[in-house]
Simulated assay, not measured.
Amino acid sequence: MCILFLHTNPDPQDNEYRLIVATNRDEYYTRPAKAAYKCPETGVIAGRDMEPGREYGSWLGCTIKNELDNELTEGKKFCFSCLTNISGNNKVPNAAGRGELVIKYLEGTATFPEYIDKLKNTDVSFNGFNLIGVELSKGGLTRTYHSCNQPEIDSVYTGKHTIGFGNSTISSPYMKVLNGRNRFQEIIERNLDKDQLKAELLALLKDKTQHLPDEELARRSPVGLQVLSSIYVEYLSAGYGTRTHTIVLLDKEWNMEFIEFTMQEPIIDPRHPEWHQTVIKSSL
């Protein structure tokens, strides 16, 4: 289980943001991972999976890419990507690791639609996923892309939007995604200062309120229904739960702050973890 809330605004006022992201990564407590860092070779900011056979894939990341504007001169755009798995679908034999989807998009030069077109023309198979890409440039581009492979759904959101994604299709969201998205929107509309905003977003990501009943979650994940119905997952009997919170803020002046809170490994007692904080800043 993972959950993502994002907000885009191409024309922010003072104290508003072009992009706000709040997301949880849920994973087995024993699965090894690296905390977020900026890769010196590619410039991509991301945490990395270190599971044998899946090394250096990621669930989320961002970077700055080059692009050509209308004058055919080189400009810059900020790119963000996040992956959520689709739960409850049949497994694909010999499926490739889905974590490579985020990294290959961020490391490449293709736009998100170009990347998805190339992906669909390969023989590589993946288990079910939602792949989200956000591209923002000073030339006015503000687009959020969504691609799902089971079933095939491609969506584009332009301009100002507040959206939530989880481990189901976008047409059948879990109740925690719907209710969490509403609370996320309320937090944004309060026009808080940055420290207050980060605190409220973190509180949202740590919320253990159970959002039941939920027919879609019951259909896809009937085992563990109650513990999986909250934004912050603590499924102790399965050795699984929320391990990482990430907040990304891109302000009116194109200053970016990437904040990650992740459980320090090894995770001995997930009820009382040690949290490691990473803060990375850059500007467009």
Rank of each mutant, 00 (worst) to 15 (best):
M50D: 06
S137F: 10
E253Q: 15
K118T: 13
I3N: 09
P52Q: 01
W254N: 13
K120W: 05
F261E: 12
I20R: 02
F112K: 05
L284D: 00
T73R: 15
T109E: 13
Y235F: 15
E253S: 13
Q185E: 15
R219F: 10
D193Q: 07
N89E: 14
P113Q: 09
R271M: 13
G133L: 05
A238Y: 10
L225G: 06
K176F: 08
T42V: 04
Q226V: 14
R48M: 00
E200C: 09
N255F: 03
T242H: 02
V233N: 08
F165S: 04
D193H: 13
N85W: 01
M256C: 15
K38G: 01
E74D: 08
Y240E: 03
E200Q: 12
I267L: 02
E260V: 09
V248C: 06
N149C: 03
Y235G: 03
H211I: 03
V156E: 13
F112N: 04
V279P: 00
Y105W: 10
A22C: 04
I103R: 08
K281Y: 05
L217G: 00
Y145D: 00
Y105H: 11
L178R: 14
L4T: 07
L192Y: 11
L236S: 06
T42R: 07
R220M: 09
Q210M: 15
N167K: 02
S283K: 14
A95I: 00
D123H: 10
H146V: 14
F258L: 02
D69M: 11
D154R: 09
N89P: 02
L136C: 11
E107P: 06
T63A: 12
H211L: 08
T278I: 08
I259C: 08
K198V: 07
E71V: 03
H161G: 01
D117W: 09
T242E: 03
E186K: 14
R183C: 10
G241K: 07
L178H: 11
L250D: 01
A110L: 13
Y157E: 04
N24S: 08
L228T: 04
W254D: 11
T244N: 05
Y115P: 04
E55M: 00
E74M: 14
R220H: 01
I153Y: 09
Y145V: 02
A238D: 14
